[in-house]
C-alpha cells in the first residue's frame, strides 16, 4: 500500500514536471522567436486573459457545465435503457439498430439548426444534441457488457427458475459494470464536445459562444483562455467518472484486469 501510493505520487510529480517544462518552452519559444500575439499568445498572456475576465469565464463555464451535466445525464439514462432493452429482446435489437446508427452517422452540425428551429435557442436543443453525442458510447459499451455473461451462468440461473429480471439484477448488470464505466468516461468527453458544437451553431451564452465571440473579434488571448477552460472542463468531467469507477466497479476494487 505504501509502495503503491509512492508510485502514484511519483507519477503525478512526473506529469506536473512535464507540464511545467512544456509551458516554459512555449513561453521561451514565443519570446525568443518573437511570435506575434495574434498567431500564438504566450502562456503568461493566456493566464492574464484568464485573470482579467474571470467573472465572464466563470459565468459562461457554469452555463456550459449545466448543459453538459443535464445532457450527459439524459444521454447516460437513454444509453443504459436502450442497452437493457436491446440485449433483452432480439426484436428490439434489430428494430433499433438502424435508427441508433443513424444518429451517429448524421452530421450533428447539420441537424442542430433544425432542432433550434423546432425548440428555440433554449436548453432543449442543447440537451438533445449533447445526449445524442453521449448516449452512443454508453449504449455500445453497456450492450457488450450485458452480453459478457456466459451462457452457462444464465443456464445456472434458469436451473432455479430465475426470472429475466433476476438474471439481469444478479448477474448481467453487475457483470456489465466495468464496460458501463468505460462507456461513461467516453460519454463524458463526448458530452463536452457536443456542448461546444451546439453553442457554436447558436447560443447566447456558454464557452462555445465565448470562443466564437473572441475569435470574431480577434481576441486571441481570450480565445486561447477559453480553450484552456474547455480542456479543464473535459478533464474534470472525465476524472469524476474515473473516480466513480474506482469507487463502484468491482473490477477495480478487486484489481482484476
Amino acid at each position: 500500500m505504501v509502495l503503491k501510493s509512492t508510485i502514484v505520487r511519483w507519477r503525478i510529480l512526473g506529469a506536473a514536471l512535464l507540464l511545467v517544462m512544456l509551458l516554459v518552452s512555449w513561453q521561451a519559444g514565443v519570446v525568443l522567436f518573437d511570435v506575434p500575439g495574434y498567431l500564438l499568445p504566450s502562456p503568461l498572456e493566456i493566464a492574464q486573459a484568464l485573470w482579467n475576465n474571470h467573472t465572464t469565464f466563470a459565468e459562461h463555464t457554469l452555463v456550459t457545465l449545466g448543459e453538459v451535466l443535464i445532457g450527459l445525464g439524459v444521454g447516460i439514462l437513454l444509453g443504459l435503457a436502450l442497452a437493457v432493452l436491446m440485449s433483452w429482446s432480439p426484436l428490439l435489437n434489430n428494430a433499433l439498430y438502424a435508427p441508433v446508427l443513424a444518429t451517429q452517422t448524421t452530421p450533428i452540425v447539420a441537424i442542430a439548426p433544425i432542432l433550434i428551429i423546432w425548440f428555440g435557442v433554449g436548453l432543449t436543443p442543447k440537451v438533445i444534441i449533447i445526449a445524442i453525442f453521449s448516449f452512443f458510447p454508453v449504449l455500445v459499451n453497456t450492450l457488450s457488457g450485458l452480453q459478457a455473461t456466459s451462457r452457462q451462468m444464465v443456464q445456472l440461473m434458469k436451473s432455479v427458475a430465475a426470472s429475466d429480471w433476476q438474471i439481469y439484477r444478479y448477474v448481467r448488470i453487475p457483470m456489465a459494470l466495468p464496460h458501463v464505466f468505460a462507456g461513461l468516461r467516453l460519454a463524458a468527453a463526448a458530452a463536452v464536445v457536443g456542448a461546444i458544437v451546439v453553442e457554436w451553431v447558436s447560443s447566447t451564452a456558454g464557452l462555445g459562444y465565448l470562443l466564437i465571440l473572441y475569435q470574431s473579434r480577434l481576441n486571441i488571448d481570450e480565445a486561447f483562455a477559453t480553450l484552456v477552460i474547455l480542456m479543464l472542463l473535459g478533464v474534470t468531467v472525465f476524472a469524476l467518472f474515473a473516480w466513480l469507477e474506482r469507487r463502484f466497479s468491482w473490477q477495480k476494487r478487486l484489481g482484476i484486469e
Binding site: Q152, M153, Q155, P174, W250, L254
Partner: peptide
C-alpha cells in the same frame, strides 16, 4: 459445468 462460472465480485 466444466467452467466454475462463479461471479467474480
Amino acid at each position: 459445468f466444466q467452467q466454475p462460472v462463479l461471479l467474480p465480485w
